[in-house]
Design a protein around this nucleic acid. Structure first.
Length: 925
DNA sequence: AGCTGCCCGTAC
DNA sequence: GACGTACGGGCAGCTA
């Protein structure tokens, strides 16, 4: 049977561009994507197909743009570095002997679809080589009498049976189009049904067979998602048209004429030399093309691609970033010594530790993985214990052997979320120095707006690579086993891959950051130095008075019981005060109280605002509020915190997430110590349980109005700058300015209004929001805002400037150059866009404050490091740093910490720091 | 029993 | 729809 290979050139070029580091030849021309594509083509040639065609998109509009003007509207223009590689690629493709097709008015997909069907009809075996899943709609399984299959040489996957399609997509090949129409396609800007992903689409199609079936039965689908479906109904037929690959494009030549020509050796030699493809060049001169004989490979399986050609030259960096690596399990002294030698010879290495627990503070090391070059790595197990487990090296021997490398500051270490690894190694007697690069932080600095910065997501995003997930080897939920019970084979493919992929990610991300001096500075001067500081703070922990919390729990419990009994009497029946649903039924259906507030989904709300509004009509709402306040304190804090105390230290060790908040703030969890109550007396009591041990004190230092000061700095508004320089209470000064009073004349109510305006502005609040906040009319609120802006015109200009900058550049910056990209700033949806604008206004202030606090933490840590533990930094709460200090050192600590915090930035207004001290955190305020 | 979305509430 | 950034508890519905 004749064979035809259809190559989706555009998809490979695009994916190779994003997967590979930005290589250039000696003349500085970009070559990375080209290199990837060329290797892929040489592998395809090794298959000796009868016919093959390389299809690329032609520039200009296609019929889909006419159908739907927004088609691909949010796809950015081809990067210059990629565009520059298109013509050279076409030259090489043709010199290699491939027919090249570029048809205007349709996409490469449609040309491939047309040729595939034509050839299949004529009995040719068709292989579509593409990285695009949408092609699954064309599949005609061989075992079903058809003859079209798909291969993806980047992931190494083959799709050639109906079962494989069902396993991958949950629907049959002939339902793929309907599925895509329901899901939409974010890349092409085809908007599907909101919240409908592959699972939901497959579920509906399994029930109703086709898209038309789903449309006919749309009324039967319940819930929020059913509503979303009905909203989307009108655009579904168009979606189907957009995602359907055309199979009837008029073409000049039949598929069977697309035979491979002989390669043009002279032209290839010139091109390869120009772009520095040395391995390919060597093949031209004598040696047979790789794969032609000794590496004969089949089209089935991972071998099909550029993957196993062995074509990578020593001169060019390894291009196969999205490939699986080969890993070694180190169980003998000889192997270990060989790896030590490898690490000694390398400039830098990546590492990862494996433990028997996710909690860094109690975890035991069970193995270490290492990598010095991409696609290779090792796992050194020493704590795996299961029936039949092979003999392993001793933990202490391994750590002793590695210690000189890990503690050598000049030997650079690369990790992913290395704070965890640093901590575990330290608790096992290895104090790491020279922790130089962290791929999680690279990703965070490069694009803080991305939702996830974990390794699996980064590998997918930047390498197009599916990593072995933890649950793949250790299971999940109730079936999860500790890593120490995972077999050495599974452990190696998981753990060594972590080190390997870390290295590959660094190769991709480092240049992206290095290209922007301001990002590089944020990464080098703030985020990387902060890693060991946070590790120390977490490890210090804070002493908690568990007995005090238990007393509070008991007290809260009694009062909850009283409130519950009162509520039962008032309602005339029992109900769950914890259930918003039951409370809503009781208040609005049984007691027929008026609905004055609704939730975002349109349901009657029973939140605090709603219950306050009903307080004059019935006694019950107030009692429910009382109960709720008590229940919140008990369940979230007084009951929970004692569970989180580390039994061996008696202290609570939170985790700080350095890539947690897009603005650059830290986030805290397990437990979250950044939302311990302070505003009410009951809540504030909880802070009395955060105590200092005998002979020591808690000291809290916090920046006064740091974000408003940053607003003054950024806006350069003379009135606001003056207000901060004068040293008056800022809200009072604002009230005096806005309401035309002297400082002394300002009433408490006027100060309250000014405070609400000050804060509201920083969050991009509207007149509507201010009115709600202050309980005044919207018109009055608008007057306040107008008055404010007339007194502080610089602030208004700053806000407008920021919005505009965000729209034009797609991101905003802090004073120190940290960027926040705003995905939705150009959205057509007004709600989304308005939200992005508010975030744009807030981010420079919140983010600059975060930068300043981080800089202060680094300086203070450096200072405290030499003091032998007389003072420990133990908490960070955004604008506050908390210390545990020897009694005799308190005064010095306060002075030193305040100085360093105030000096962490030079703004147009002074940075003021307040400090307090006491036996517990409450007293320290 | 575990997962997920929703509602609600705490901090700065 | 209307105020930015987080984390987390309890409920309710779904899934296995």
């Amino acid at each position: 049977m004749p064979k035809l290979v259809l190559i989706d050139g555009s998809s490979y070029l695009y994916r190779a561009f994003h997967a590979l580091p930005p290589l250039t030849n000696s003349a500085g021309e970009p070559t990375g994507a080209l290199f990837g594509v060329v290797n892929m083509l040489r592998a395809t040639l090794a298959e000796r197909p009868d016919c093959a065609v390389f299809v690329v998109d032609a520039p200009g509009k296609t019929f889909r743009d006419d159908l739907y003007p927004e088609y691909k509207a949010n796809r950015s223009a081809l990067p210059d570095d990629l565009r520059a590689q298109v013509q050279p690629m076409c030259d090489i493709v043709q010199a290699l002997g491939f027919p090249l097709l570029r048809i205007a008015g349709v996409e490469a997909d449609d040309v491939i679809g047309t040729l595939a069907l034509e050839a299949a009809r004529e009995g040719t075996e068709v292989t579509i080589s593409t990285g695009d899943k949408d092609f699954a709609q064309l599949l005609q399984p061989f075992d079903d009498g058809g003859s079209i299959r798909l291969v993806n040489t980047m992931s190494g996957s083959v799709l050639d049976t109906d079962e494989a399609v069902i396993a991958k997509f949950g629907v049959r090949a002939n339902q793929i189009v309907d599925m895509l129409a329901l899901m939409g396609d974010a890349i092409d800007n085809v908007k599907g049904v909101d919240k409908c992903g592959p699972k939901t689409a497959a579920k509906w199609l399994a029930e109703y067979g086709t898209l038309d079936g789903v449309i006919e039965n749309a009324e039967k689908i319940g819930g929020k998602i059913g509503e979303n479906l009905r909203t989307a109904l009108p655009r579904l037929p168009l979606n189907r048209e957009l995602v359907t690959i055309k199979t009837d494009v008029p073409l000049d030549q039949p598929a069977k004429s697309m035979t491979l020509r002989d390669r043009d050796v002279d032209t290839l030699r010139t091109l390869y030399a120009r772009y520095g493809f040395n391995a390919a060049l060597r093949d031209l001169d004598g040696t047979p093309a790789p794969g032609a004989t000794e590496r004969k490979v089949s089209m089935r399986g991972t071998e099909a691609g550029w993957a196993r050609t062995g074509a990578a030259s020593a001169e060019a960096p390894d291009p196969r970033l999205g490939e699986k690596g080969e890993y070694e399990t180190v169980t003998t002294r000889e192997q270990l010594d060989a790896w030590i030698a490898k690490l000694q010879a390398a400039d830098a290495f990546a590492f990862d530790v494996e433990t028997d627990s996710l909690d860094a503070h109690t975890a035991n090391l069970v193995g270490v993985s290492l990598a010095t070059q991409a696609h290779a790595g090792c796992y050194i197990p020493f704590g795996h214990d299961y029936p039949g487990a092979p003999a392993q090296l001793k933990r202490e021997d391994v750590l002793d052997a590695l210690r000189p490398l890990f503690t050598d500051a000049s030997k650079k270490k690369i990790g992913q979320h290395g704070k965890y690894d640093l901590h575990v190694l330290r608790t096992h007697g290895v104090a790491v120095r020279g922790y130089a690069e962290d791929t999680m932080l690279e990703s965070f600095v490069f694009n803080a707006g991305a939702s996830r910065h974990d390794m699996d997501s980064l590998a997918k995003r930047y390498l197009g690579y599916d990593t072995v997930r933890y649950e793949d080897v250790a299971g999940k939920g109730a079936k999860q086993i500790p890593f120490s019970h995972v077999s050495l084979e599974d452990a190696t493919r998981y753990a060594a891959e972590d080190a390997d992929v870390t290295l590959r990610l660094h190769a991709v991300l480092r240049p992206k950051i290095a290209a922007e001096p301001s990002l590089d500075a944020v990464y080098r001067d703030i985020e990387m130095p902060l890693v060991p500081v946070l590790e120390r703070i977490e490890s210090n922990g804070v002493l908690v008075d568990v007995a005090e919390l238990r007393r509070q729990s008991a007290d809260l419990g009694k009062r909850m019981l009283d409130a519950q009994q009162l509520a039962t009497n008032l309602a005339g029946r029992t109900f769950s005060l914890d259930s918003p649903k039951q409370v809503g039924q009781l208040l609005f259906e049984e007691l027929k109280l008026p609905v004055q507030v609704k939730t975002s989904t349109g349901q009657p709300s029973v939140n605090e605002e709603a219950l306050e509004a009903l307080a004059d009509l019935h006694e019950l709402p107030k009692v429910i509020l009382e109960y709720r306040g008590l229940a919140k304190l008990r369940s979230t804090y007084t009951d929970k915190l004692p569970e989180m105390v580390n039994p061996s230290t008696g202290r609570v060790h939170t985790s700080y997430h350095q890539a947690g908040a897009a603005t650059g703030r830290l986030a805290s969890s397990d437990p979250n110590l950044q939302n311990i109550p302070i505003r009410t007396d009951d809540g504030r009591r909880i802070r009395r349980a955060f105590v200092a041990p005998e002979g020591r004190r808690i000291v809290a230092c916090d920046y006064s109005q740091i974000e408003l000061r940053i607003m003054a700095h950024l806006s350069e508004d003379p009135n606001l700058l003056r207000a901060f320089t004068s040293g008056d209470d800022i809200h009072r000064a604002t009230a005096a300015e806005v309401f035309g009073r002297t400082i002394e004349e300002v009433t408490n109510n006027e100060r309250r209004a000014a405070k609400a305006i000050n804060f509201g502005l920083m969050y991009g609040m509207s007149a509507f929001g201010l009115a709600k906040q202050l309980g005044i009319g919207r018109g009055e609120a608008q007057d306040y805002i107008a008055l404010y802006f007339s007194r502080y015109p610089g602030v208004r200009d700053f806000m407008e400037r920021t919005r505009q900058e965000a729209r034009e550049r797609g991101f905003v910056e802090t004073v120190f150059g940290r960027r926040l990209h705003l995905e939705n700033i150009q959205a057509r949806n007004q709600g989304l866009r308005a939200g992005a604008e508010r975030a744009a206004i807030n981010a420079p202030m919140q983010g600059t404050a975060a930068d300043i606090v981080k800089r202060a933490m680094i300086e203070i840590d450096r200072w405290l490091a030499g003091l032998g533990g007389r003072a420990l930094m133990i908490l960070q709460v955004h604008d506050e740093l908390v210390f545990e200090v020897e009694e005799a050192f308190v005064e010095e600590l306060v002075a030193g910490a305040k100085d360093r915090m105030a000096a962490a930035a030079e703004l147009r207004v002074p940075l003021v720091v307040d400090a307090g001290q006491g036996l517990n955190w409450d007293e320290a305020h």
